[in-house]
Computed example of a mutant assay.
Amino acid sequence: MLRVIIVEDEEIIRKGLVHTVDWLSMHCTVVGDTDDGQKGLQLIQQHRPDLVITDIRMPVMNGIEMLGQALKIYPFHSIILTSYTEFEYAKQAISLKVFE
């Protein structure tokens, strides 16, 4: 069973991902979710997930910073959600080996 953490500051999106995706059918379980990158970093350290799904722009710490710090401590896969079109975000995500 893959452990998943979701970090998204928009509650409706975060709760939607947690509660409407059929995680069990994909052999996954959501072990934590939160609304900012600093709390996300703490969850990653605590739960050591296999996958982190995160937004880029969030309060306290953005998703790129959170992933960069967390990947120095523990290896995991990541998916970034964003509606922003700035290419700089894409370059930073690629350097972190983000999937989407």
Rank of each mutant, 00 (worst) to 15 (best):
Met1Gln: 07
Leu2Ser: 12
Ile6His: 03
Glu8Leu: 09
Glu10Cys: 12
Glu10Leu: 11
Glu11His: 08
Ile12Val: 10
Ile13Glu: 08
Ile13Thr: 12
Ile13Trp: 14
Arg14Ala: 08
Arg14Leu: 11
Arg14Gln: 10
Lys15Asp: 14
Lys15Met: 13
Gly16Thr: 03
Gly16Trp: 04
Leu17Thr: 08
Val18Thr: 12
Val18Gln: 08
Thr20Tyr: 11
Val21Tyr: 02
Val21Trp: 05
Asp22Ile: 13
Trp23Gln: 00
Leu24Met: 12
Leu24His: 15
Ser25Lys: 10
Met26Glu: 15
Met26Asn: 14
Met26Cys: 15
Met26Thr: 10
His27Ile: 05
Cys28Thr: 05
Thr29Ile: 09
Asp33Val: 07
Asp33Tyr: 15
Thr34Gly: 11
Thr34Trp: 14
Thr34Gln: 15
Asp35Gly: 15
Asp36Met: 05
Lys39Asp: 11
Lys39Tyr: 09
Gly40Tyr: 03
Leu43His: 08
Leu43Cys: 02
Leu43Trp: 11
Ile44Gly: 01
Gln46Tyr: 15
His47Cys: 15
His47Asn: 14
Arg48Glu: 07
Pro49Ala: 06
Pro49Met: 07
Ile53Leu: 04
Ile53Cys: 05
Ile53Met: 06
Thr54Asp: 00
Asp55Phe: 13
Asp55Ser: 03
Ile56Lys: 05
Arg57Gly: 09
Arg57Thr: 15
Met58Lys: 05
Met61Tyr: 04
Asn62Lys: 02
Gly63Asn: 07
Glu65Ser: 07
Glu65Pro: 07
Glu65Lys: 02
Glu65Gly: 05
Met66Gln: 02
Leu67Thr: 04
Leu67Asn: 08
Gly68Glu: 09
Gly68Pro: 09
Gln69Tyr: 13
Gln69Val: 10
Gln69Met: 08
Gln69Trp: 14
Leu71Met: 12
Leu71Tyr: 10
Ile73Ala: 04
Tyr74Thr: 02
Pro75Trp: 00
Pro75Leu: 01
Pro75His: 03
Phe76Lys: 02
His77Val: 03
Ser78Asp: 00
Ser78Cys: 06
Ile79Trp: 00
Ile80Cys: 01
Leu81Tyr: 10
Leu81Trp: 03
Leu81Asn: 04
Thr82Pro: 10
Thr82Arg: 06
Ser83Asp: 15
Ser83His: 11
Ser83Tyr: 09
Tyr84Thr: 06
Tyr84Ile: 10
Thr85Tyr: 09
Thr85Asn: 12
Phe87Lys: 07
Phe87Trp: 12
Phe87Gln: 14
Glu88Thr: 08
Glu88Cys: 09
Glu88Leu: 12
Tyr89Leu: 07
Ala90Met: 09
Ala90Phe: 10
Lys91Arg: 05
Lys91Ile: 08
Lys91Phe: 12
Lys91Val: 06
Gln92Pro: 14
Ile94Cys: 05
Ile94Gln: 02
Ser95Glu: 12
Ser95Trp: 11
Ser95Asn: 10
Ser95Thr: 08
Leu96Asp: 00
Val98Ala: 00
Phe99Ser: 02
Phe99Val: 07
Glu100Trp: 03
